[in-house]
Amino acid sequence: MLDASRISQRIKLRQLSVFVAVVEHGSMAKAAEHLSISQPVISKMIASLEQTLGLPLLERSRLGVTPTLYGEALLKRSIALSNDLRSGVDELQALADPTIGELRIGSTEPVMAGLLPAIIDRLSRQYPRLALHIIEGEPPELQDRYLRNHDIDLMIGRLPSPTPAADTDVQELLHESGVVVAGLNNPWVRRRKIRLAELVNERWCLPPRESFPGGWIANAFHASALEVPRPSVTVYSILMQSALLASERFLSFLPASMLHYSAKRLSMKILPVEMPAQMWPIGIITLKGRTPSPARRLFIDCALEIAKPLAGKRTPDR
């Protein structure tokens, strides 16, 4: 096998893109059809790539092809390289005009229901030629899969751990907590003060106990010396929770910032319930060692400005 420096000089980007297409489509014939080139050309390029590396990349069978252990490793790097190249082209375009370009953002459902739309609304008004691509996921997946594979340029949401990973930079935006919410015509919204104990036997729509918000809710009840109520409906989806709250029969817990930015749109109201002050940080995570694009800098600056009203608050908004 050749040494790394000589291999890098001999491998062509076209070979890598063809290799990725073959793996994604599971056969050389399907990849050839997708790329609009002949199957013999595909076979020749894959054979040349394997010869250059001195390693088998694909296992052939009657059912098609699958990557070997070496192929899996090359696939991951090839996708990251393709994403980096695309980001590089975007950066060159943005240097000519910093108000255009593309930004790939990973976020969580609660942030996508409140804070993120507020950021995007202002950003798009100021820079209407920016193109934003949003991917939804959970914080660990967004960081460990999408960010490290360069599928996204940044992640905005709950920070996955108290200590940032060594290869990431973190910009904290605000400290988040949960609030009790109800539909606008729920009888409880007429009360000026409510104890959490009064709500234990109400009809609750709550996320699963094993989820992060489910664990936070359980801790909130335990901190008030109460048993966690048995939910009438258990569902993680905020969209589903919002729909049930609109029926005026259910109560739920939702992030305070989501209600700060979207309570009117979602037709719900925060109940005046004293909650234990348990906070967790919401922030932006980027990878170290990557040149920040102008679009990324514009987004982070806008996010800091939008989050400023809540950044210093240590108790939920009411």
Results as ranks from 00 to 15, higher is better:
S293Y: 00
P292S: 10
K269H: 10
A263Q: 15
P272R: 05
S262T: 11
S257Q: 13
S242H: 11
F250Y: 15
Y261E: 08
R249W: 02
R265I: 09
L245Q: 08
S247R: 12
L266S: 08
K269P: 02
E274V: 07
L259C: 15
V273W: 06
A277M: 06
S252M: 10
S252A: 15
R249D: 12
Y261P: 08
P294S: 14
S247W: 02
S262W: 06
F250H: 10
S242R: 14
I282C: 03
A246Q: 14
A246P: 00
K269D: 03
L259W: 11
F253I: 15
K288L: 05
S267C: 09
S242Q: 13
K264T: 13
S293W: 01
K264Q: 14
M279E: 05
R265E: 14
P255R: 06
F250E: 03
P255V: 02
W280Y: 13
A295W: 02
L244V: 06
K269T: 12
R249S: 13
V273S: 08
T286S: 09
M275F: 02
M258H: 11
A263F: 07
A243L: 10
V273L: 09
V273A: 09
S262I: 07
M268G: 03
L251G: 04
A243R: 15
M258G: 13
I285T: 11
G289R: 04
M279H: 06
T286I: 04
K288S: 07
R249C: 08
S252F: 11
S293G: 05
L245T: 03
Y261M: 05
S262F: 05
R265L: 12
H260G: 06
P294G: 11
G289I: 08
S242W: 02
I270C: 10
A246N: 13
Q278V: 00
L259E: 14
M275W: 05
I238V: 12
L245H: 08
I285Y: 00
A263I: 06
S247P: 01
I270E: 07
K264E: 15
S257G: 11
F253L: 14
E274W: 00
Y261A: 06
L271M: 08
S247K: 11
Y261F: 15
A243M: 10
L239W: 01
Q278Y: 04
K269W: 01
P272V: 10
W280V: 03
M268W: 15
S257I: 02
L239Q: 09
M240C: 01
S267Y: 09
Y261G: 07
H260N: 09
P276V: 00
S242E: 10
L271E: 09
E248S: 14
A243P: 00
M268H: 14
M240E: 13
P281A: 10
I282T: 09
I284M: 04
L244Q: 06
P294Y: 13
R249T: 10
M268E: 03
Y261R: 08
G289E: 04
A263W: 10
S262M: 09
K269I: 03
Y261S: 07
L251Y: 06
K264S: 13
P276N: 02
M275Q: 12
F253P: 01
M275A: 06
S267D: 14
I238Q: 12
